[in-house]
Protein backbone atom coordinates (compact mmCIF):
# COMPACT_ATOMS: atom_id res chain seq x y z
CA UNK A 1 0.00 0.00 0.00
CA UNK A 2 1.03 3.49 -0.56
CA UNK A 3 2.07 5.57 2.29
CA UNK A 4 0.33 8.54 0.94
CA UNK A 5 -2.86 7.61 2.57
CA UNK A 6 -5.24 10.44 2.49
CA UNK A 7 -7.46 10.66 5.43
CA UNK A 8 -10.88 12.01 4.94
CA UNK A 9 -11.48 15.47 6.14
CA UNK A 10 -14.56 14.59 7.99
CA UNK A 11 -14.35 11.51 9.95
CA UNK A 12 -16.49 10.01 12.56
CA UNK A 13 -17.37 6.49 13.42
CA UNK A 14 -20.28 6.65 11.10
CA UNK A 15 -18.99 8.39 8.07
CA UNK A 16 -15.98 9.04 6.03
CA UNK A 17 -15.47 11.63 3.37
CA UNK A 18 -13.19 11.93 0.39
CA UNK A 19 -12.59 15.26 -1.18
CA UNK A 20 -11.58 15.37 -4.78
CA UNK A 21 -9.91 18.17 -6.71
CA UNK A 22 -12.85 18.25 -9.07
CA UNK A 23 -16.58 17.72 -9.04
CA UNK A 24 -17.60 14.12 -8.86
CA UNK A 25 -20.44 12.37 -10.50
CA UNK A 26 -19.90 8.71 -11.23
CA UNK A 27 -19.01 6.33 -8.48
CA UNK A 28 -18.63 2.60 -8.00
CA UNK A 29 -17.96 0.26 -5.15
CA UNK A 30 -16.29 -3.04 -5.80
CA UNK A 31 -18.33 -6.04 -4.94
CA UNK A 32 -15.48 -8.01 -3.59
CA UNK A 33 -12.37 -7.39 -1.75
CA UNK A 34 -10.08 -8.03 -4.55
CA UNK A 35 -6.98 -7.89 -2.53
CA UNK A 36 -6.34 -11.08 -0.79
CA UNK A 37 -4.49 -9.53 2.04
CA UNK A 38 -6.99 -6.91 3.05
CA UNK A 39 -10.64 -6.56 3.45
CA UNK A 40 -10.47 -3.27 1.70
CA UNK A 41 -13.01 -2.45 -0.88
CA UNK A 42 -12.24 -0.45 -3.91
CA UNK A 43 -14.12 2.64 -4.78
CA UNK A 44 -13.91 4.40 -8.10
CA UNK A 45 -15.03 7.96 -8.59
CA UNK A 46 -15.34 9.77 -11.88
CA UNK A 47 -15.01 13.47 -12.39
CA UNK A 48 -17.41 15.83 -14.02
CA UNK A 49 -15.18 18.31 -15.77
CA UNK A 50 -16.36 20.29 -18.71
CA UNK A 51 -13.41 19.25 -20.75
CA UNK A 52 -12.58 16.32 -22.88
CA UNK A 53 -10.12 14.96 -20.36
CA UNK A 54 -11.74 13.72 -17.23
CA UNK A 55 -10.40 11.58 -14.44
CA UNK A 56 -11.25 8.41 -12.71
CA UNK A 57 -9.70 7.95 -9.28
CA UNK A 58 -9.51 4.80 -7.28
CA UNK A 59 -9.72 4.60 -3.53
CA UNK A 60 -9.80 1.84 -1.05
CA UNK A 61 -11.97 1.79 1.98
CA UNK A 62 -11.32 -0.04 5.17
CA UNK A 63 -14.52 -0.36 7.11
CA UNK A 64 -12.65 -1.44 10.22
CA UNK A 65 -10.58 1.63 10.49
CA UNK A 66 -12.89 3.88 8.60
CA UNK A 67 -10.11 4.97 6.38
CA UNK A 68 -10.30 5.95 2.76
CA UNK A 69 -7.09 5.63 0.89
CA UNK A 70 -6.50 7.23 -2.46
CA UNK A 71 -4.35 5.51 -5.03
CA UNK A 72 -3.11 8.18 -7.36
CA UNK A 73 -1.11 5.63 -9.28
CA UNK A 74 -4.37 4.02 -10.26
CA UNK A 75 -6.01 7.17 -11.53
CA UNK A 76 -6.51 7.42 -15.21
CA UNK A 77 -7.79 9.80 -17.82
CA UNK A 78 -11.20 9.30 -19.23
CA UNK A 79 -12.67 10.93 -22.31
CA UNK A 80 -15.65 12.98 -21.30
CA UNK A 81 -17.15 12.65 -17.85
CA UNK A 82 -17.97 9.01 -17.24
CA UNK A 83 -21.70 8.54 -17.14
CA UNK A 84 -21.31 5.47 -15.02
CA UNK A 85 -18.66 3.35 -13.36
CA UNK A 86 -19.11 -0.19 -12.25
CA UNK A 87 -16.98 -2.98 -10.93
CA UNK A 88 -17.31 -6.53 -12.05
CA UNK A 89 -20.22 -7.97 -10.08
CA UNK A 90 -18.63 -11.26 -9.29
CA UNK A 91 -17.42 -11.67 -5.76
CA UNK A 92 -15.09 -14.44 -6.76
CA UNK A 93 -11.61 -13.73 -5.64
CA UNK A 94 -9.39 -12.74 -8.46
CA UNK A 95 -6.05 -11.23 -8.74
CA UNK A 96 -7.51 -8.19 -10.36
CA UNK A 97 -10.72 -6.26 -10.61
CA UNK A 98 -12.45 -5.20 -13.73
CA UNK A 99 -13.92 -1.76 -13.93
CA UNK A 100 -16.31 -0.65 -16.64
CA UNK A 101 -17.04 2.91 -17.61
CA UNK A 102 -19.43 4.46 -20.04
CA UNK A 103 -19.19 7.67 -21.98
CA UNK A 104 -18.57 7.91 -25.65
CA UNK A 105 -18.05 4.16 -25.58
CA UNK A 106 -18.10 1.33 -23.14
CA UNK A 107 -14.66 0.71 -21.76
CA UNK A 108 -13.26 -2.02 -19.63
CA UNK A 109 -10.29 -1.57 -17.32
CA UNK A 110 -8.20 -4.07 -15.52
CA UNK A 111 -7.47 -2.87 -12.02
CA UNK A 112 -4.56 -4.39 -10.26
CA UNK A 113 -3.03 -3.46 -6.98
CA UNK A 114 -0.58 -1.08 -8.44
CA UNK A 115 -1.62 -0.57 -11.99
CA UNK A 116 -4.60 -0.13 -14.18
CA UNK A 117 -4.80 -1.06 -17.83
CA UNK A 118 -7.50 -0.61 -20.42
CA UNK A 119 -8.88 -3.91 -21.57
CA UNK A 120 -11.11 -2.87 -24.36
CA UNK A 121 -13.16 -0.14 -25.91
CA UNK A 122 -16.45 -1.51 -27.03
CA UNK A 123 -17.81 0.47 -29.91
CA UNK A 124 -20.79 -0.56 -31.90
CA UNK A 125 -20.91 2.51 -34.10
CA UNK A 126 -21.00 1.94 -37.81
CA UNK A 127 -19.40 5.24 -38.58
CA UNK A 128 -16.27 6.78 -37.34
CA UNK A 129 -17.29 10.39 -37.33
CA UNK A 130 -20.26 10.10 -35.05
CA UNK A 131 -20.82 8.28 -31.90
CA UNK A 132 -23.93 8.11 -29.86
CA UNK A 133 -22.94 8.69 -26.23
CA UNK A 134 -23.87 6.07 -23.71
CA UNK A 135 -25.94 7.39 -20.88
CA UNK A 136 -25.57 4.40 -18.64
CA UNK A 137 -25.01 0.68 -18.49
CA UNK A 138 -25.56 -2.25 -16.18
CA UNK A 139 -23.55 -5.32 -15.55
CA UNK A 140 -25.51 -8.51 -15.39
CA UNK A 141 -24.63 -10.06 -12.06
CA UNK A 142 -26.19 -13.39 -12.97
CA UNK A 143 -24.35 -13.59 -16.27
CA UNK A 144 -21.33 -11.36 -15.75
CA UNK A 145 -20.23 -11.64 -19.32
CA UNK A 146 -23.18 -9.46 -20.20
CA UNK A 147 -23.22 -5.72 -20.07
CA UNK A 148 -26.13 -3.76 -21.38
CA UNK A 149 -25.68 -0.15 -22.41
CA UNK A 150 -28.19 2.58 -23.01
CA UNK A 151 -27.66 5.20 -25.66
CA UNK A 152 -29.22 8.36 -26.90
CA UNK A 153 -29.60 6.71 -30.28
CA UNK A 154 -32.71 5.04 -28.79
CA UNK A 155 -31.01 1.68 -28.54
CA UNK A 156 -29.87 -0.65 -25.87
CA UNK A 157 -26.89 -2.82 -26.70
CA UNK A 158 -26.04 -6.04 -24.97
CA UNK A 159 -22.38 -6.91 -25.10
CA UNK A 160 -20.68 -10.17 -24.56
CA UNK A 161 -17.60 -8.68 -22.98
CA UNK A 162 -15.73 -11.93 -22.93
CA UNK A 163 -15.87 -12.11 -26.67
CA UNK A 164 -16.02 -8.39 -27.12
CA UNK A 165 -18.97 -8.66 -29.44
CA UNK A 166 -22.45 -7.32 -29.52
CA UNK A 167 -24.92 -9.93 -28.45
CA UNK A 168 -27.86 -7.86 -29.53
CA UNK A 169 -28.87 -4.32 -30.14
CA UNK A 170 -32.44 -3.34 -29.59
CA UNK A 171 -34.20 -0.19 -30.65
CA UNK A 172 -35.62 0.00 -27.23
CA UNK A 173 -37.38 3.32 -27.15
CA UNK A 174 -38.76 6.06 -29.26
CA UNK A 175 -36.29 8.52 -27.86
CA UNK A 176 -32.98 8.54 -26.06
CA UNK A 177 -32.46 5.79 -23.55
CA UNK A 178 -31.16 7.07 -20.26
CA UNK A 179 -30.73 4.09 -18.04
CA UNK A 180 -30.86 0.36 -18.01
CA UNK A 181 -31.05 -2.28 -15.31
CA UNK A 182 -30.85 -6.03 -15.42
CA UNK A 183 -33.40 -8.10 -13.60
CA UNK A 184 -32.43 -11.58 -14.62
CA UNK A 185 -29.85 -13.12 -16.86
CA UNK A 186 -31.85 -12.25 -19.94
CA UNK A 187 -34.24 -9.61 -18.76
CA UNK A 188 -33.51 -5.95 -18.50
CA UNK A 189 -35.53 -2.80 -18.23
CA UNK A 190 -34.78 0.65 -19.52
CA UNK A 191 -36.00 4.21 -19.17
CA UNK A 192 -36.05 6.86 -21.77
CA UNK A 193 -36.77 10.38 -22.79
CA UNK A 194 -39.99 8.99 -24.18
CA UNK A 195 -41.15 8.69 -20.62
CA UNK A 196 -41.57 4.96 -20.55
CA UNK A 197 -40.16 2.08 -18.58
CA UNK A 198 -39.87 -0.97 -20.78
CA UNK A 199 -38.91 -4.49 -19.97
CA UNK A 200 -37.08 -6.60 -22.51
CA UNK A 201 -36.49 -10.27 -22.62
CA UNK A 202 -33.64 -11.39 -24.79
CA UNK A 203 -35.58 -14.52 -25.62
CA UNK A 204 -38.23 -12.45 -27.34
CA UNK A 205 -36.60 -9.44 -28.81
CA UNK A 206 -39.59 -8.50 -30.90
CA UNK A 207 -41.54 -7.25 -27.98
CA UNK A 208 -41.12 -5.18 -24.94
CA UNK A 209 -43.48 -4.52 -22.11
CA UNK A 210 -44.20 -0.98 -21.13
CA UNK A 211 -44.83 -0.99 -17.46
CA UNK A 212 -44.94 2.71 -16.88
CA UNK A 213 -45.31 5.92 -18.75
CA UNK A 214 -44.72 9.29 -17.22
CA UNK A 215 -47.93 11.19 -16.65
CA UNK A 216 -46.88 14.04 -18.86
CA UNK A 217 -46.05 12.53 -22.22
CA UNK A 218 -42.42 12.62 -23.00
CA UNK A 219 -41.29 13.65 -19.57
CA UNK A 220 -37.95 11.92 -19.50
CA UNK A 221 -37.23 9.21 -17.01
CA UNK A 222 -33.62 9.55 -15.97
CA UNK A 223 -32.79 6.67 -13.75
CA UNK A 224 -34.01 3.19 -13.07
CA UNK A 225 -33.30 0.90 -10.16
CA UNK A 226 -34.49 -2.67 -10.07
CA UNK A 227 -35.00 -4.13 -6.64
CA UNK A 228 -32.64 -7.05 -6.56
CA UNK A 229 -34.21 -8.33 -3.39
CA UNK A 230 -37.64 -8.48 -4.92
CA UNK A 231 -37.69 -8.24 -8.66
CA UNK A 232 -41.32 -7.27 -8.72
CA UNK A 233 -40.36 -3.78 -7.78
CA UNK A 234 -38.39 -1.14 -9.49
CA UNK A 235 -37.98 2.55 -9.01
CA UNK A 236 -37.53 5.39 -11.43
CA UNK A 237 -37.20 9.13 -11.32
CA UNK A 238 -38.51 11.78 -13.64
CA UNK A 239 -36.55 14.73 -14.86
CA UNK A 240 -37.01 17.84 -12.74
CA UNK A 241 -39.27 16.00 -10.37
CA UNK A 242 -39.09 15.48 -6.65
CA UNK A 243 -40.83 12.15 -7.00
CA UNK A 244 -39.52 8.66 -6.74
CA UNK A 245 -41.91 6.39 -8.59
CA UNK A 246 -42.15 2.83 -7.32
CA UNK A 247 -43.43 0.34 -9.84
CA UNK A 248 -44.70 -3.16 -9.51
CA UNK A 249 -44.20 -5.01 -12.74
CA UNK A 250 -47.34 -6.96 -12.03
CA UNK A 251 -49.46 -3.87 -12.27
CA UNK A 252 -48.26 -1.99 -15.26
CA UNK A 253 -49.00 1.67 -15.83
CA UNK A 254 -49.98 2.40 -12.26
CA UNK A 255 -47.23 3.09 -9.77
CA UNK A 256 -47.66 1.37 -6.47
CA UNK A 257 -46.21 4.36 -4.72
CA UNK A 258 -44.85 7.78 -5.33
CA UNK A 259 -42.41 9.13 -2.79
CA UNK A 260 -42.68 12.86 -2.72
CA UNK A 261 -40.82 14.23 0.23
CA UNK A 262 -37.83 15.64 -1.54
CA UNK A 263 -37.96 19.36 -1.87
CA UNK A 264 -36.10 19.51 -5.11
CA UNK A 265 -35.47 17.19 -7.96
CA UNK A 266 -34.32 13.70 -7.18
CA UNK A 267 -30.99 12.78 -8.74
CA UNK A 268 -30.30 9.25 -7.67
CA UNK A 269 -31.95 6.19 -6.20
CA UNK A 270 -30.68 2.91 -4.80
CA UNK A 271 -32.49 -0.05 -3.32
CA UNK A 272 -31.14 -1.46 -0.10
CA UNK A 273 -29.07 -4.51 -0.90
CA UNK A 274 -30.23 -6.28 2.23
CA UNK A 275 -33.90 -5.47 2.42
CA UNK A 276 -36.51 -5.52 -0.25
CA UNK A 277 -38.51 -2.83 1.43
CA UNK A 278 -35.97 -0.08 1.71
CA UNK A 279 -34.79 2.40 -0.80
CA UNK A 280 -32.63 5.45 -0.59
CA UNK A 281 -32.98 8.54 -2.69
CA UNK A 282 -30.96 11.71 -2.96
CA UNK A 283 -31.49 14.97 -4.69
CA UNK A 284 -30.93 18.63 -5.16
CA UNK A 285 -32.39 19.39 -1.77
CA UNK A 286 -29.08 18.09 -0.43
CA UNK A 287 -30.89 15.31 1.32
CA UNK A 288 -30.61 11.60 1.25
CA UNK A 289 -33.79 9.92 2.39
CA UNK A 290 -34.28 6.32 3.36
CA UNK A 291 -37.73 4.99 2.81
CA UNK A 292 -39.45 1.91 3.96
CA UNK A 293 -42.22 0.93 1.67
CA UNK A 294 -45.34 0.35 3.68
CA UNK A 295 -47.88 -2.33 3.01
CA UNK A 296 -50.50 0.32 2.74
CA UNK A 297 -49.95 3.91 1.88
CA UNK A 298 -51.54 6.49 4.08
CA UNK A 299 -53.73 9.21 2.70
CA UNK A 300 -51.10 11.84 3.08
CA UNK A 301 -48.43 9.95 1.27
CA UNK A 302 -45.38 8.18 2.52
CA UNK A 303 -42.84 9.75 4.77
CA UNK A 304 -39.28 8.55 4.72
CA UNK A 305 -37.89 6.72 7.69
CA UNK A 306 -34.86 8.85 8.03
CA UNK A 307 -32.93 11.58 6.41
CA UNK A 308 -29.44 12.91 6.03
CA UNK A 309 -28.46 16.28 4.78
CA UNK A 310 -25.27 16.77 2.86
CA UNK A 311 -23.74 20.15 2.31
CA UNK A 312 -24.68 20.40 -1.31
CA UNK A 313 -26.84 18.91 -3.97
CA UNK A 314 -26.32 15.19 -4.04
CA UNK A 315 -25.56 13.92 -7.49
CA UNK A 316 -24.82 10.31 -6.92
CA UNK A 317 -25.86 7.55 -4.61
CA UNK A 318 -24.65 3.97 -4.35
CA UNK A 319 -25.66 1.28 -1.95
CA UNK A 320 -23.40 -1.65 -2.54
CA UNK A 321 -24.19 -5.23 -1.84
CA UNK A 322 -20.61 -5.65 -0.78
CA UNK A 323 -21.01 -2.99 1.85
CA UNK A 324 -24.66 -3.06 2.80
CA UNK A 325 -24.08 -0.98 5.90
CA UNK A 326 -22.69 1.90 3.92
CA UNK A 327 -24.35 4.27 1.58
CA UNK A 328 -22.07 6.34 -0.56
CA UNK A 329 -23.06 9.67 -1.93
CA UNK A 330 -21.39 12.23 -4.11
CA UNK A 331 -21.99 15.93 -3.85
CA UNK A 332 -19.95 18.78 -5.18
CA UNK A 333 -16.38 17.47 -5.16
CA UNK A 334 -16.92 15.14 -2.26
CA UNK A 335 -17.60 11.49 -1.94
CA UNK A 336 -18.99 10.40 1.37
CA UNK A 337 -19.67 7.07 2.94
CA UNK A 338 -22.51 7.00 5.43
CA UNK A 339 -23.17 4.18 7.82
CA UNK A 340 -26.74 3.11 8.07
Amino acid sequence: MENTTQESHLRSENSVTYESPYPLYSMALSSSSSQSRTRNHRIAVGSFIEEYANRVDLLSFDAETLTLTAHPELSFDHPYPPTKLMFHPSSVQKSFDVLASSGDYLRLWEVRDTSIEPISVLNNSKTSEFCAPLTSFDWNDVEPKRIGTSSIDTTCTVWDIEKGVVETQLIAHDKEVYDLAWGEARVFASVSADGSVRIFDLRDKEHSTIIYESPQPDTPLLRLAWNKQDLRYMATILMDSNKVVILDIRSPTTPVAELERHRASVNAIAWAPQSYRHICSAGDDTQALIWELPTVAGPSGIDPMSMYSAGAEINQLQWSAAQPDWISIAFANKMQLLKV
Binding site: F48, E51, Y80, P133, I152, D153, N267, G283, E313, N315
Partner: peptide
Protein backbone atom coordinates in the same frame (compact mmCIF):
# COMPACT_ATOMS: atom_id res chain seq x y z
CA UNK B 1 -28.33 18.43 -11.94
CA UNK B 2 -25.44 16.44 -13.25
CA UNK B 3 -27.71 13.53 -13.89
CA UNK B 4 -29.60 15.68 -16.36
CA UNK B 5 -26.43 16.98 -17.91
CA UNK B 6 -25.33 13.45 -18.60
CA UNK B 7 -28.66 12.26 -19.92
CA UNK B 8 -31.07 14.79 -21.29
CA UNK B 9 -28.37 17.32 -22.01
CA UNK B 10 -25.55 14.97 -22.76
CA UNK B 11 -25.05 16.27 -26.26
CA UNK B 12 -24.59 19.80 -25.00
CA UNK B 13 -22.28 18.54 -22.30
CA UNK B 14 -20.23 16.65 -24.81
CA UNK B 15 -20.06 19.62 -27.05
CA UNK B 16 -18.81 21.72 -24.19
CA UNK B 17 -16.20 19.13 -23.43
CA UNK B 18 -15.33 18.73 -27.05
CA UNK B 19 -16.39 21.38 -29.53
CA UNK B 20 -15.72 18.91 -32.29
CA UNK B 21 -18.31 16.56 -30.99
CA UNK B 22 -21.11 16.00 -33.45
CA UNK B 23 -24.13 13.92 -33.22
CA UNK B 24 -26.98 13.42 -35.59
CA UNK B 25 -30.24 11.69 -34.90
CA UNK B 26 -30.39 10.86 -38.56
CA UNK B 27 -28.06 8.02 -37.95
CA UNK B 28 -30.18 6.48 -35.30
CA UNK B 29 -31.35 3.07 -36.28
Amino acid sequence: PLVARLTKDIIETYQICNPQFRYSEELNP
